[in-house]
Design a protein around this nucleic acid. Structure first.
Length: 419
DNA sequence: TCTGGGGTCCTAGGACCC
DNA sequence: TCTGGGGTCCTAGGACCC
């Protein structure tokens, strides 16, 4: 039986989430900004039509926003994560095999379905997701994941919202009309290289000589080319429960100069990262602390320090202490810092450290229990109900979110009101 | 004034071993 | 004159994704 994959892709996801709870946003141009109200990360179709480009800094578009009465929103990831869960739960009800690929995309296996059934099934999914969650989706169907991605781009522009490229007689025309940079796995660097060799369309990449691709794009490139030719190299992946690295960092709402505030921010991000570490039942003994000034300005400065704990741990105070002594080493006075971050590598499961639990300073049972209590309280009563003094009180450096919508679905105090 | 955050995988090169 | 070679592991960096 022929393989078939569907890619379900939410349309303008963040904008669609906002519209579910604020109908006034329907039919007008809407954009959603990244953290710290920095760049444009989502646009409604009306905003795309103006046109407003993707990923540009918001301050560069101020004039366009004003002229076209664009509704500008800060991102509300709590809301988007919850809406994503609803969409994925809906798909899971009907999927035979499924992979949540990102916050707004999922791959489904359609193996065993005939062509007409595939289309019917996907139209049904599309209608059901819309009814149950309010989120519009497009669905592309292909023999490989890469081709399903291609098909979803076509689906997005069609009225039906579903496009099946398997056995489609004009499939090569579709590929010919698609820029090579639109292919999954082809980013800016590879696009530049491919253009140099005259490979500018998806069809040209499909026919590109394998040795050349192998040499310049590695095995991933070869796999992409094979997938364009209908040979599967990527399959439905089981859910990834354990991260290999945990990064927590954010830009400041304003430049920060004092060591005190940098320490607070570092403690805040360490706390978040170690929380994530515990939530996946892991420990670590190595992590990196880094600081950066504004990279778009002269005098750019960045530095980092690798902290080593005496033993693998997920005890937050251990990490905070180490982070602050690291900060002392990398801090240079007189700089305007833009960002602090923490990266935990070297992650191992927490059941692999039993040998060390009786040594002093280790992640022993008592400390594990204390952390478990803190996590439970924060989960039940809201994060940061129990917090560490080192994370600061004023937190004047916190990121900007000037135009954020309420936590409609996850906070009792902010439920939408019907009138 | 204002330029995101959080991940993955692959590869080349060096260290080290026999 | 002649100065091994192959394997493994680790790391940093670069590419990609959303």
């Amino acid at each position: 039986m022929k393989r078939a994959y569907a890619l379900v892709d939410c349309n303008n996801f963040y904008v669609s989430c906002e519209r579910v709870f604020n109908p006034k946003l329907e039919g007008v141009p809407v954009v959603v900004l990244s953290n710290n109200d920095g760049c444009i990360v989502a646009r409604s179709n009306e905003a795309k039509a103006i046109p407003i480009p993707f990923a540009v800094p918001a301050f560069q578009c101020r004039e366009t926003f004003r002229k076209h009465k664009v509704r500008v929103l800060s991102s509300n990831y709590t809301l988007y994560a919850d809406m994503s869960r609803r969409v994925m739960d809906t798909l899971r009800e009907f999927a035979y095999d499924m992979e949540v690929y990102s916050i707004d995309e999922a791959f489904l296996s359609l193996v065993g379905l005939e062509k007409e059934r595939r289309g019917e099934f996907c139209s049904f999914l599309r209608k059901t997701v819309r009814q149950w969650t309010g989120i519009p989706v497009s669905i592309g169907i292909g023999e490989t994941k890469t081709l399903a991605k291609v098909a979803s781009k076509v689906a997005k522009k069609s009225d039906e919202g579903v496009f099946d490229i398997i056995d489609y007689p004009y499939a090569d025309n579709v590929l010919e009309g698609m820029d090579v940079s639109d292919i999954w796995g082809v980013g800016p660097a590879y696009t530049k290289f491919l253009y140099r060799y005259g490979i500018t369309t998806a069809l040209a990449l499909k026919k590109a000589p394998e040795p050349l691709v192998r040499k310049k794009m590695g095995v991933m490139g070869v796999r992409t080319v094979r997938e364009l030719n209908g040979r599967s190299c990527f399959w439905i992946e089981p859910p990834q429960t354990k991260r290999k690295g945990i990064l927590s960092s954010k830009s400041f709402g304003r430049p920060v100069e004092s060591l005190k505030e940098l320490n607070e921010a570092a403690a805040t991000y360490v706390t978040r990262a170690v929380e994530k570490l515990r939530s996946q039942r892991s420990v670590a003994s190595v992590f990196m602390v880094f600081i950066l000034t504004n990279r778009f300005k002269e005098d750019y400065y960045s530095n980092s320090y690798l902290c080593r704990l005496p033993a693998p741990s997920a005890y937050t105070p251990d990490f905070i202490r180490a982070a602050q002594s690291a900060m002392k080493r990398i801090y240079k006075p007189g700089k305007k810092y833009k960002k602090v971050g923490v990266f935990i590598a070297d992650i191992v499961p927490d059941d692999s450290i039993q040998m060390a639990v009786f040594e002093p300073g280790s992640y022993n049972t008592k400390r594990q229990e204390l952390m478990a209590v803190v996590d439970r309280i924060n989960e039940q009563w809201g994060s940061n109900v129990v917090d560490y003094a080192a994370t600061g009180v004023k937190k004047g450096w916190r990121m900007r979110r000037r135009m954020c919508s309420p936590q409609f679905t996850t906070n009792w105090d902010e439920l939408p009101e019907a009138s």
